[in-house]
Design a protein around this nucleic acid. Structure first.
Length: 346
DNA sequence: AAACCACTTCAAATGACCAT
DNA sequence: ATGGTCATTTGAAGTGGTTT
């Protein structure tokens, strides 16, 4: 649970300081007994949790005990209603936080310190947060929102017709034993041989290749589809896989998974940046992409079912096991391939 | 012992919905 | 329209503990 940003968000929405404290306490109490709110949010936008937090006047009349396990030392109806409301507020915050606190990022750099002992702050045991990106934006008077918008607007996507054609062609190659590339897997690309072997088993395709530079195929694809050639007519853009999964034959070469990202924005798309930044930006970016490419994302998810991926994988793994006792390499491969073939979800 | 603080619980205000 | 019922929302009151 992200108390600090939740507090900022409530503040920017005009909530009273005491209300802010109350709602944070409420949410913390729910988290303590029912699990972290962020986890609930990621799982199902807290739907199952909210179900348990339902308690009507009728329930009260009939003396039904609450469906949640949070102790309430008082009126269950009222208490449950308060907690439910707090969770709903947190959901609201999670749903539009990336828009709301970008607006007033520059207004005040004052930390709202929640539930920290005042002495500790005075003694300097708790330092206010310092973030170089925030300092940078403040110095040059750029709002976070504008930076994000720059990133979204300047990211180059291939045209949708070309994406469509290329995707059909890619699937055809996969299913018809033609050449397809993947990125090398594991240290020194040792895991790649398992991938290549697995694709033989899965589609009878014997022509899956490890990309020689780990990025040659995507470079070429983006060049063909957009007309931009690196260091010839385009500079300081980075070829980037939106959904990763570069060892997955369906994903490494899929044009709908590849974009040109301005290098200045790249830190927000990757994992080297810490804190809320990449999370926020990725959320915005993903929303855009889900709108644009929902057709392909759905199709990809369906393919996972159609090829019966999980069943085939366990068949394949148990096959290797017969010859080759359960080695570390195989365990690594199994983990990796499951990630690479995971469903794409918002 | 007074002031302060975190946290929980409660009561009142509000508004949606429904039957009349 | 009117009144009743209910869920939701809000912040103040209450509680119990710590700090000054």
């Amino acid at each position: 649970m992200n108390e600090i940003d939740f507090a900022k968000w409530m503040k920017s929405n005009g909530y009273d300081e005491s209300t802010i404290r109350s709602r944070i306490s409420n949410c913390q109490r729910v988290s303590e007994y029912e699990g972290d709110l962020d986890v609930h949010y990621e799982k199902d936008e807290c739907k199952s949790l909210l179900k348990r937090l339902k308690y009507s006047t009728n329930d009260k009349r009939e003396g039904i005990s609450p469906r949640h396990s949070i102790p309430i030392n008082g009126d269950i109806y009222n208490g449950t209603a308060t907690l439910r409301q707090a969770v709903n507020l947190y959901i609201k915050f999670r749903n539009n936080s990336h828009f709301d606190h970008t607006k007033n990022i520059d207004n005040d750099n004052k930390e709202i310190v929640i539930n920290k002992k005042k002495v500790d702050i005075d003694k300097g045991l708790i330092k206010p947060k310092l973030d170089s990106y925030e300092r940078f934006l403040k110095t040059f008077n750029i709002s976070k929102f504008d930076l994000y918008m720059f990133g979204l607007n300047e990211t180059i996507f291939p045209s949708i017709e070309l994406v469509e054609k290329q995707w059909e062609n890619l699937k055809e190659r996969i299913y018809n034993n033609q050449e397809v590339s993947i990125r090398g897997a594991g240290r020194d690309a040792k895991g790649t041989k398992y991938y290549i072997d697995f694709y033989k088993f899965l589609f009878g395709n014997e022509n899956v290749r490890k990309d020689p530079t780990n990025n040659l195929a995507p470079q070429k694809i983006i060049e063909e589809l957009t007309g931009y050639k690196r260091n010839v007519n385009i500079y300081n853009y980075q070829v980037s896989h939106i959904f990763g999964r570069t060892k997955n034959v369906f994903m490494f070469e899929a044009a709908w998974n590849i974009v040109l990202v301005p290098k200045i924005i790249d830190p927000f798309t990757g994992h080297e940046t810490k804190g809320i930044w990449p999370k926020e930006y990725q959320q915005l970016f993903r929303n855009e992409v889900f709108k644009k490419y929902s057709k392909y994302i759905n199709e990809y998810n369906k393919i996972l079912d159609e090829i019966d991926f999980h069943k085939k994988l366990s068949m394949y793994i148990s096959n290797i096991d017969k010859e080759n006792a359960r080695s570390n390499e195989v365990i690594q491969f199994e983990k990796s391939v499951k990630r690479e073939f995971s469903e794409i979800v918002k």
